[in-house]
Design a protein around this nucleic acid. Structure first.
Lengths: 180, 180
DNA sequence: TATTGTTATACTCTATAACTATA
DNA sequence: TATAGTTATAGAGTATAACAATA
């Protein structure tokens, strides 16, 4: 992990990985004591902004499964940060609202995250804003059209491993010693 | 996931997440049929470059556990891409070397990944190189000194959730219905 | 006794499917 | 019948610990 700093191996994937992991770690440190961690923070945020009319919509918006969202909301509700309120128009649906304490907590953490971002980009100095711009541009494009649709087809033309075991799947079953 | 494209919510974390996930997905698509997937590709790469003198060193260099490395190498060896050769000087150690086929496969995939990167950065046009530079600068800094050491201390000063359940941990155990 | 590599076990996260209550 | 939410179960990935061989 320390070996290929400025060396020839400084490829995009390595850089992106390091930067993203550093960001995730910083955010985790800042939010690990929140129920649900960073995920819980996101849910809480949408509740605070009154953008959580029902759980299904909430789940798709956050890109997570509705089943994990149930647990997430359970934990947030247990800590008194959000509340489930049945929609009177459709009693199947539950509206997620933030409590006063939930709003407080989210507002504070939001400020902390701003700080974290600034520290993370500090090494870039004056170029920090340029980096933000580029990332946003890339992200918007990536969101509009799924990128790399033909990366697959490129692979098709090349090596196709005959009998490649699925990544890390069967590794756990029987091994070197198993002859029969 | 589609809601806050250019809206006010275009924060760094969101952008980084989208870009990184797009990259991971593209790389996964390009390497999923390799034993061990992207991880296997990295191991294979170090073997090809003769930088895999023993597994412990290999594991720390890749930032993975030595136990998962065992399975990874098992799968790569089963497909005839690498070989374990006991070090004559220290018979506890095994040197990991790439077979001729392993070198072929890695070389081809390496080219594919180059292509994937280009496609991913294509929306940036002439600014792609600038982005690469910025990412690398950030990554090098992040690798030198662990970033956000005081992000924790910032949090200390703010809300401390009294009884926050560990993120997503106890969610699975007993729930809403469990009263006693 | 410490270290390399292996194996077995447990734990977390995620995904799938079955279930309820409403519509 | 279809949908929102919940619960139960199984899977993949990872981490921990015990083990054999060597130093």
């Amino acid at each position: 992990m320390a070996t290929r700093d400025a060396a020839l191996g400084a490829d995009l994937g390595w850089g992106l990985g390091v930067v993203f992991r550093a960001y995730v770690k910083a955010v985790d440190d800042a939010l690990h004591d929140l129920p649900g961690g960073p995920r819980g923070y996101q849910v809480l945020g949408l509740a605070v902004q009154d953008r959580a009319d029902n759980q299904a919509q909430l789940a798709t918006e956050l890109g997570i499964d509705r089943t994990v969202l149930t647990y997430l909301i359970d934990d947030l509700a247990d800590c008194g940060l959000v509340e489930r309120k049945p929609d009177p128009d459709d009693r199947r649906r539950r509206r997620i609202t933030a409590t006063a304490r939930g709003i407080d907590v989210w507002t504070q953490r939001h400020a902390v995250l701003d700080h974290v971002e600034q520290m993370l980009l500090a090494p870039l100095g004056a170029d920090a804003d340029a980096f933000r711009d580029l990332v946003t541009r890339l992200a918007v494009h990536a969101n509009q059209a799924e990128p790399a649709p033909n990366a697959c087809t490129v692979v098709e033309q090349l090596t196709r491993l005959d009998d490649a075991p699925t990544p890390n799947s069967r590794a756990r079953q029987r091994k070197r010693g198993a002859t029969s």
